[in-house]
Structure formats: structure tokens, C-alpha cells
Design a protein around this nucleic acid. Structure first.
Length: 645
DNA sequence: ACCCTTATCT
DNA sequence: TAGATAAGGG
């Protein structure tokens, strides 16, 4: 097509692809339009085949590709297909709810370049550009003399087209033989090394950063863990909501928030964790010819690069001048794998350096003065028994906490990989309670091999004035570039049996920090002299098990109970109760002898069986985060562009 | 079946 | 060295 992607000829080639969608069903039209737009395509819809034809005729070069339903009242889809084939050389994709071979064959015979089955998946739509692309390639080839063909694509990535085709084709092979023969000729098969130009790398980095920022709900995509920190009666806690789906986490959190709210507890901050994998990056990058393997490979190098970078900065890596224990007992920068509980145990004893590791974040209240090395008051956790499986039957002794209790816990999990995840937090709390989002909390996220047990000494802290309204002012998403640590067992959650009681809790101000670059200097964060509750964040350490809970109601109740039971006033250890997905930790600072007093938090609502419902999809919208959190200024730029070169 | 990470290859 | 590929694992 001469029209090619003339209009969209931009960096992001497939973006702007002009698609004409024809379907008599308005609902489908809408859906498709939405999906296509999501792919950054330029979409035109039409519910009548005739109109479609008219449009095409009247606007030659107006479209790059046509997607048409097979069954339409005014004109058979095949007929349309035929006409288009005759009059204009546009790739046409047919679709229908019926996958009968003969039909598909018919479509193909009539010249369809693809045949999609409804419901159409995003993936498929994302790939439709290929048809246009291929056509283009062929034309260029035919002309041969055109050396400038590739110029169409500024990145000069065209070279990899063949590779792309093959790669993509591999997957579609089963049902797309036709395409294969038609498009993957020998010449195209030549594989070309992908060159990660600065531009491309930038896209990569952007994608990484974006993960965790994109607030739109996409099942199984993006976020999957949420952490909420709050203080109650001078004791800080945090809730960990690991799940395969951030929204589930969010719902759980939301629900919990309501109770907190009732108890006049305000979350200090909310952190979202997201896993970053080649696939997601690839999707976000939206670079057609790139393959997952390409990204995976690059990601590997990137991680190495980051760890190198980190190592350089290591000496500086101390909190408030405190030298942190180093747990990376093993290995070089490259290995950030997750460790088994056992390993962790060992590590605990060992001293090593910081390292990154998946989904482990380190947040520290920089403002508070932490005494390095002082591990007294180690935060402990008490994984609660999971109702059903009771895998974690025994609650470790809070006192023993740390490694030992962890051991016990994890060991009881059979095949289940100890879904243990430690997180330490390091952040600066901007003075006051200005959780208004105006004072962005800067957080330094760090990843390390080991749970961090940083504790401060006891301080004498004035009681915290507790706001009456809980509001999540900040939501930070923190995509982890490092391998996941199985914080979650995604998708195993099953239907949520909870009902969001306070959807209004959705955050209004979400700020995010750089997912990746965090290592490097976020430490510059100012340590405000007026920390709200220094003691509160002395240390945080958490462990999470991903045991699933079936019944949120029950769990919540259990939670509460266990919390109340387990609280050991003055123990200085953290206490945790958990139902599979939400865990509550007390982060009591040393020297504090106050009871957690969650009595005020009522979970009774959960007892209402009527509340047990599946997560209504419409809630997603309601829970959609606002996007105003994208404060890019907060992004460290460390990694941008540094990698290359 | 799919995706991820790591190690190794080129 | 950078990127591809193979291997192992969840």
C-alpha cells in the first residue's frame, strides 16, 4: 500500500495504524474500537458493510487495514472482503464467533489475511499491524530498487522484520499456515541481531518505568502487590496484600481501610509492587518487530548493568549514615534470585552488601535516626495460619522472630515455595501529616537479598495525632525489575469473597517513583527534621506467605483475632496476622509497650455472608486510579540512557 | 503451555 | 561486549 503507514510514520510505527472496523453489532464495534485504540491505532468504525465500502472507496489511502465481521445483515462479510480485494489492495481481517474450519478457509480463500475469533483478544489485535507491514515489505521487495524502503521506519529496525515474522508466526502456526507461506519467504527469514539503540533502550526503560504506573486495569498485568503502612496508637503496621492481581489487592486493602478508617487510622502510604518481565515490557514498548526473547536478553543485560551500577554506589548506600548489613551472601551482582527461607536464614547471619532482588523493597524513614547494626527490636512477623490449609499452622514465637521464626514457618510449607518476602522500607516522611500529596514522600527503594531488619532504638515519641479520615494519599507503584520473589501466587486467589466497602478509598494522589533507578540515589532525600513518627518506621520487615484464603470474612476475623492474641505489648516485635492475602504487621519500635489495640477495628462486616461476592468487574472502573500521579519529575534519571554506551 | 531466569554461546 | 539461544524451573 502506498498509503502504507504514511500517516503514522512515527517512531512508534504500529501506533497510528488506520483501522476500519466493520461489524453490525454495535457492542462489538465499541469493544473493538476500544481495544484497537488501546493499541494506539487510529480506529474508524462502521456497522454497515455498504457504508464501509463507500468509505473505503471514497477515501482511498484512508485506511491501512480492515477488520470485518463475517455475518452482517446488509452484506456478507465475504462479499465485502472480495470487493475490497478487487478494488483496493488492503489487508482484510475477518472475524466471527464461529471458528468452523470451512468458514475460516472460506475467508482465507477470499483473500482474508487473517481470521479472528470472537471474542478477540488484545494480543491478536496488537499484532494486526503485521499484515500491513508484510504487505509493505513485499511491495518494497517487488520494487527492489527501492533502497529507501526501510526509511519508512526511522529506527531502521526494519531489518529485523523477518525475524519478527518468524517469531510471531511460530505462535500462530497452527491456524495460520496460509500466512506463513505467504509471508515468510527465505529472505525474510534472515535473522538480524537487534541493536538496542539509545532510542530503543529508552523505550525499554520507559516501559519498565511505566509498569506500575499504568493504572488501568488489566487482569494479571501490572500490579500484584500492595503494601499499606499505617500507624495506630503509635505503633506502625503495614498491610501486605499480595495477589495475582493488583485490583484484588486493592480491594482487600480498601476493605481493610474502611476498618482502619473507623478506627481513625490513616495509612501513611501505600506502595504498589509490580513485577517486571520481558513480556510486559515488550507489550508496553509496543515495538512490532521486537520479540520477547530480545527483551529478555536485554533485560538480563540491563539487570547486570544495574547491579554493576549499584555496586559502584554501594559505599554510599547507607541509611542516614548507617551502614547496613549486607546479606548478599552469594554471588555476584548478577544473582538476585529469591532465596529460600533457609538461605535467608543463613543470610541473616552473614554480612554482605546490598543487592537487588525481586520485589523486595527497602524503605526507610530517613528522618529518623537509625542506629546501624542495632538489630534489637527486630521486627518479627507471625504468619497466621491459613484457614483452609493450615499450612502455616504454628505461629512462630514473636520473640524469635527473624530468621528462626521464618524458618519454622516456611518449612511447614510443603511443596509450596516459601512465599516469603521481606520488605524493608526506607523513606522520608515529609514533615507533618501533610499526606496531602503535596509533599511527595520520597522513597528509596532498594532491593536486597535479605530482609532488612532495621530498627531504631526506642524513641520517645509524642503520640501521633491521628486523622479522622483515612485517605490514601499516595500510591506508589514499584515495579521491580528483578526477578519476582513469589510474593504472590497469582491467579490463585479465586474469586474474591469480599466486598469493597469503601471504594471511595481510591487514591486521589498517586505518586510514583522510579522503579528501577531507585538504587542510586534516592538517598538524597532530605531528612526532614520533623518526622511525624520517627519511631513508627524504624524498621519494617515483613514476610508474606501466599497461602490463599477462601473466605475473606473468616480471614479477617481470624486476622483480627490473631492480631489481638498475638500482640505482645512492649515486645517490640512486629506482629502479624494474615489471611492469605492481607497481612498485618505491627512495627512497633523498640521500647514501645503499647498494645496495638485493634479492638476498634471491626471486621464484623465480613461475617455477612451476603457480602461474599465475586469481584464485580465494574468495580474496576470505580477503582481506577487517577493518573495524576505521574510525576515524572520524581523519576531519577539514573538509568536513562546510561545503559547503552 | 507459557513465561521467566540463568547460563552459555557466538 | 551485546545479543541470541539453550536449559531449567515454576
Amino acid at each position: 500500500m502506498e498509503n502504507g503507514f504514511s500517516s503514522p510514520r512515527t517512531d512508534a510505527f504500529p501506533a497510528g495504524l488506520r483501522v476500519l472496523v466493520v461489524d453490525d453489532d454495535p457492542t462489538w464495534l465499541k469493544i473493538l474500537e476500544k481495544m484497537l485504540k488501546k493499541c494506539s491505532y487510529e480506529v474508524t468504525t462502521c456497522c454497515l458493510a455498504r457504508d464501509a465500502l463507500d468509505m473505503l472507496r471514497g477515501k482511498k489511502d484512508g485506511f491501512d487495514i480492515v477488520i470485518s465481521d463475517v455475518n452482517m445483515p446488509d452484506m456478507d462479510g465475504f462479499k465485502l472482503l472480495e470487493q475490497v480485494g478487487l478494488e483496493m489492495d488492503l489487508p482484510v481481517i475477518m472475524m466471527s464467533v464461529d471458528g468452523e474450519t470451512s468458514r475460516v478457509m472460506k475467508g482465507v480463500q477470499h483473500g482474508a489475511c487473517d481470521y479472528l475469533l470472537k471474542p478477540v483478544r488484545m494480543k491478536e489485535l496488537r499484532n494486526i499491524w503485521q499484515h500491513v507491514f508484510r504487505k509493505k515489505i513485499h511491495e518494497v521487495k517487488d520494487i527492489e530498487s527501492h533502497e529507501g524502503g526501510p526509511d519508512e521506519f526511522d529506527d531502521g529496525h526494519l531489518l529485523s522484520a523477518g525475524d519478527t515474522n518468524l517469531a510471531k508466526k511460530r505462535k500462530d502456526l497452527e491456524n495460520r499456515e496460509h500466512d506463513d507461506q505467504e509471508f515468510s519467504d527465505p529472505s525474510a527469514a534472515k535473522k538480524v541481531r537487534v541493536v538496542w539503540s539509545v532510542d530503543l533502550h529508552q523505550k525499554f526503560v520507559n516501559a519498565v518505568n511505566q509498569i506500575g504506573l499504568d493504572s488501568e486495569y488489566q487482569p494479571g498485568f501490572l500490579f500484584n502487590t500492595l503494601i499499606c503502612i499505617f500507624i495506630h496508637k503509635n505503633i506502625s503496621y503495614f498491610i501486605l496484600c499480595p495477589s495475582g492481581d493488583i485490583w484484588l489487592s486493592y480491594l482487600l486493602f480498601t476493605t481493610f481501610s474502611c476498618h482502619l478508617n473507623n478506627a481513625c487510622i490513616e495509612p501513611l502510604c501505600v506502595i504498589l509492587l509490580a513485577e517486571v518481565g520481558p513480556k510486559k515490557i515488550l507489550d508496553l514498548m509496543n515495538v512490532p518487530w521486537l520479540t520477547r526473547e530480545n527483551v529478555a536478553s536485554h533485560l538480563q543485560k540491563y539487570r547486570l548493568y544495574l547491579s554493576r551500577l549499584q555496586k559502584q554506589n554501594e559505599p554510599k548506600t547507607s541509611f542516614g549514615g548507617i551502614k547496613l548489613p549486607d546479606f548478599s551472601y552469594k554471588d555476584p551482582p548478577g544473582s538476585f534470585g529469591l532465596q529460600s527461607s533457609t538461605t535467608m536464614h543463613q543470610n541473616n547471619a552473614a554480612n554482605t552488601n546490598f543487592g537487588y532482588s525481586g520485589n523486595k523493597i527497602l524503605v526507610q524513614d530517613v528522618g529518623s535516626q537509625i542506629h546501624g547494626g542495632d538489630l534489637e527490636g527486630i521486627v518479627s512477623f507471625l504468619p497466621a495460619a491459613e484457614p483452609k490449609k493450615a499450612l502455616i499452622g504454628d505461629v512462630p514465637d514473636p520473640q524469635k522472630t527473624s530468621s528462626s521464626s521464618l524458618m519454622g514457618t516456611t518449612h511447614s510449607l510443603e511443596s509450596l515455595r516459601p512465599d516469603v518476602n521481606y520488605a524493608s522500607f526506607e523513606f522520608t516522611i515529609p514533615r507533618q501529616h501533610s499526606w496531602s500529596g503535596e509533599t511527595p514522600v520520597k522513597e528509596q527503594l532498594k532491593q536486597e537479598h535479605e530482609p532488612y531488619l532495621l530498627l531504631g532504638d526506642g524513641y520517645t515519641n509524642p503520640p501521633l495525632p491521628i486523622p479522622h479520615h483515612i485517605q490514601v494519599h499516595r500510591l506508589r507503584s514499584v515495579p521491580s525489575i528483578y526477578p519476582r520473589t513469589s510474593i504472590t501466587e497469582r491467579d490463585k486467589l479465586g474469586p474474591i469473597e469480599t466486598r469493597p466497602l469503601c471504594t471511595e478509598y481510591k487514591s486521589n494522589h498517586v505518586t510514583s517513583i522510579s522503579p528501577v533507578g531507585r538504587t542510586v540515589d534516592l538517598f538524597s532525600v532530605q531528612a526532614d527534621s520533623h518526622i511525624i513518627n520517627p519511631q513508627a518506621f524504624e524498621a519494617i520487615s515483613t514476610i508474606t506467605s501466599s497461602t490463599k484464603s477462601r473466605n475473606f470474612d473468616q480471614n479477617c476475623v481470624n486476622n483480627l483475632e490473631s492480631v489481638q492474641q498475638n500482640i505482645i505489648p512492649g515486645s517490640g516485635s512486629a506482629l502479624l496476622s494474615s489471611h492469605g492475602d492481607v497481612q498485618l504487621f505491627s512495627l512497633q519500635g523498640c521500647g514501645y509497650t503499647e498494645n496495638i489495640g485493634l479492638q476498634n477495628i471491626e471486621f464484623s462486616d465480613y461475617n455477612d455472608s451476603e457480602l461474599v461476592t465475586e469481584l464485580p468487574s465494574h468495580l474496576y472502573d470505580g477503582l481506577r486510579f487517577n493518573c495524576d500521579y505521574l510525576d515524572l519529575m520524581e523519576y531519577p534519571t539514573v538509568d536513562q540512557g546510561l545503559f547503552i554506551a
